[in-house]
């Protein structure tokens, strides 16, 4: 069970949160071309590595927040981990 670092509640079990997917900017709805808007809707970088993403602390503080996670190792970049890269619990 992944521990997700909620900025308010601290490290929480991932089942306490809702995953919000890749963080990406919303284009201006009045000027976006269909291609830009649909890229926003559907296309994703989906890297095997560091990804900025959103989580919602559904069973805790009810805050949406954004963190960086490595999708290959499941480590969170912030807060940084002391010791080796796969070490600590938070």
């Amino acid at each position: 069970m992944l521990l997700v670092p909620c900025p308010n509640c601290g490290p929480r079990n991932s089942t306490d949160l809702r995953y919000g997917g890749e963080s990406h900017a919303r284009p201006d709805p009045n000027t976006a071309s269909p291609a830009e808007w649909r890229a926003y809707l559907y296309l994703r970088d989906n890297p095997a590595g560091w990804l900025r993403e959103n989580w919602y602390c559904a069973s805790g503080c009810r805050r949406w927040f954004s963190v960086e996670r490595n999708t290959a190792t499941n480590e969170f970049r912030d807060p940084p981990l002391p010791g080796d890269k796969r070490g600590g619990a938070a």
Binding site: M1, S14, R18, Y19, G21, E53, R69, T71, A72, N74
Partner: peptide, 13 residues
Amino acid sequence: DPYANYSVRGSLE
């Protein structure tokens, strides 16, 4: 699994 990732280690939940 609910969150995107490339790990295939599995979970207890």
